[in-house]
Design a binder for these strands. Structure first.
Lengths: 254, 254
DNA sequence: ATTTGACCCTGACGTTTCGTCATAGTTTAA
DNA sequence: TTAAACTATGACGAAACGTCAGGGTCAAAT
């Protein structure tokens, strides 16, 4: 016979929950001490595990109570009925997600139209000016090789190309921004960061870890980057820097 | 200016709901009659429709309250965050439906083969019978591929092979059972669980995480399994289920 | 002018599953 | 014997209203 704390440790349910289950008659301990302490038998433990199992499936405690107290209860029918309920809930959720998505595209679409920034203007001269400027800074930091490589690769890019690149980039940032709550070290975010690096390597230059790390810093120290990135989401640039650092740390360890 | 019943008819919300929204400060009518009747303006109606819209998307009333009372509220961010929540809920629901399906197929399929325990009887015909039956259930769940694979692989197994498999399996269970006190999340146990999965994949079919998780549930819900497993050690089946779930959760994160 | 019926109001409890105190008795080890 | 650790029983809170209960208000019919 086990006391509440032991049962709690064994099964992972809280003591309060045990009280509650006793209270509503879902799981009444087989025994009781002189002082009125609840004493649970091995059988009680098994019952509890059954209860937890059905609870995981989303059954209400009242339903579970019926199921375990009526051994001849038709579980199959109950399960089928339950499944229908779950399916309906799922449908509703999907509907909700759809609605959110629709609203979201309208909202973000509106914002993007409003703002004209360097990545939205595909004027070739502007891009070149940007490249030049970036080139100078980059030379100081990473030497001339990377700069030359970038220039060589981007020279032949058409407006269409830039537009595509911008689209991909926006998409990636978008993806990351909605996952900010998962934390910069989350698997999802780290995967996206990896994609981002690949994307740079594909379109601009071989983005080594050192460079990548520096790029992350740039997002916070250079207000042009900061502003451009944070337009997706406030605080995204700092978040990106953290995530990129974590990414680099981990990659170095491999 | 409209009274509660009119608003109720116009929008479909109950009068009590209007009371409630007033009470929590979500929708306070613009006017009031001498007798203290709530009088809603056209603007109020619009607000209410906004509220209903966000409610449909599954926002909590408190969140909605913030959104409509703070006109510069970042709806985009809120929506994105909300979407994540919805997606998580959906995942959980799908998991639950999966579990229900597993239980259902094994409950319905179990009637005819009640007394035949696949692991204890090495009679070839019995095994084949089991395989057939399992095949039907499994087909519903995982499609025909896994079933065919199992059949293909096990067709040539001799009694000796089955005996060996059983031996290995017993050994593994034994190993796990003596480590139960370390907890299902301990490294030792998790390693053994990993081996177990490999073992299944090697001898029967490609055991995906979904399948593996379902298998864990089976150990608790299907008494044939429970009995067979618990003969090594009381409570082992439940322990296994927990360990397998933990294993799957962790593997999914990788 | 009064009655009647439709309509409105403000509580307040119930629902669901426990978390979180608060207060108080019990057991156990030092 | 005393302090630490454990247990017990309430009771409030949370979310979003449904559902009475008890009691005013308004407009039309008597």
């Amino acid at each position: 016979m086990y006391k509440v704390k032991e049962v709690s440790h064994m099964t992972g349910v809280s003591i309060r929950t045990l009280h509650h289950y006793d209270h509503i008659g879902l799981l009444i301990p087989d025994g009781q001490s002189d002082a009125g302490y609840r004493l649970y038998s091995d059988e009680n433990i098994e019952q509890l595990q059954q209860i937890l199992f059905f609870k995981e499936m989303g059954f209400h405690l009242a339903e579970i109570k019926d199921m375990i107290h009526h051994p001849d209860f038709d579980r199959t029918t109950a399960l089928k009925a339950h499944k229908q309920i779950l399916l309906k809930k799922k449908e509703r959720l999907e509907q909700m997600i759809q609605t959110v998505n629709t609203t979201l595209t309208h909202l973000t679409g509106g914002i993007q139209m409003e703002k004209k920034d360097m990545f939205n203007g595909f004027d070739q001269t502007e891009i070149e000016a940007y490249q030049k400027q970036y080139a100078e800074e980059a030379k100081e930091k990473y030497g001339t090789k990377i700069v030359e490589e970038t220039e060589k690769r981007t020279k032949s890019y058409s407006n269409q190309d830039w537009s595509n690149i911008q689209g991909e980039m926006d998409h990636l940032f978008q993806q990351i921004s909605v996952r900010m709550d998962l934390g910069p070290d989350s698997e999802e975010v780290q995967n996206l960061i990896g994609k981002y690096r690949q994307y740079i390597t594909k379109n601009f230059y071989d983005c080594t870890l050192d460079i990548f790390r520096g790029l992350g810093d740039l997002y916070v120290t250079d207000e042009r980057f900061t502003a451009n990135i944070d337009r997706h989401q406030a605080g995204l640039s700092e978040f990106l820097r953290q995530a990129m650092h974590i990414y680099c740390d981990r990659e170095m360890q491999k």
